[in-house]
Amino acid sequence: MKIRSFGDRLFDAFIYTVITLFALACLFPFFYVASFSVTPYAEYLQNPLKLIPSRLEFGAYKQIAEMSQMWTGYRNTVIITVTGVAINIFLMLITAYPLSKKDLKGRNAILFLITFTMFFNGGLIPNFYLVKSLHLYNTLWALILPGALGAYNLLLMKNFIGAIPKDLEESAFIDGANEFKVLFRIIVPLSKPAIATFVIFHAVTQWNTFFSAIIYTSKRTLWPLMLILRDLVVDDGGLAASDLNGGQEGVTVFTLKMAIIIFSTLPILLVYPFMQKYFMKGLLVGSIKG
């Protein structure tokens, strides 16, 4: 075992201190929001930096639970996330696999067309027309289909699949497998880290969707959670404007805002740690060309 000098240990201590401080700096805003969502407002007024409340006040969460639109928002967000991710991964696999074949006819033309969409698109109004003409307006499909397959992620996936040794496929073909069997029995299992990464990428994107909902829906029952969150929190949008439930002591616009932020980010925060190992691996997806 290598003997570590005092200098090495000192350097390690320094690195750990910096990393710990950085981690705390990242954690602090979330902790701040979580703390003040359960702090009586009077305590916040006395000391806006007091992070540990003397007692916990859950009135704001009770009030949020009674807002019916929060639950429809949750439903919509879960639908567009689950469906969006499933469609995204399916489309990405069946597109990336053939494109990874160098002998595919017209491959370069197709890749050019795909890459072209990374830099140019129709713009807001043409997209609005398109969605209306396809009768997607005022449906949840309008929040799923337009962004179902992103060019950048597709190219990364193509590179990842292209890096899988050809010999594996060839041996499967010799054993009598067809292209679909090779894709779903050889390529998909070997691409798990990449798939997991894109699941996270797309799930987070779909979870945070709000702008397409503004443009492509006019019904509040179709609003995803993030749109509701944004509209309630930004500039006191929906909260200060209307009477709050004055009977619930300690609940103010401020505590309600804090609680709504926690309420809507908690699910994705709970899922993230379980996906993190794939996320770390997947960051290098497509970066090494075989």
Binding site: I80, V82, T83, V85, I87, F90, T139, L140, L222
Partner: peptide, 20 residues
Amino acid sequence: LICAMLLGSVLAACSSESDA
């Protein structure tokens, strides 16, 4: 994957239908 897609499609379609 297919199950998740079908489930999502059905749920999304339900919303679309009621909206329609």
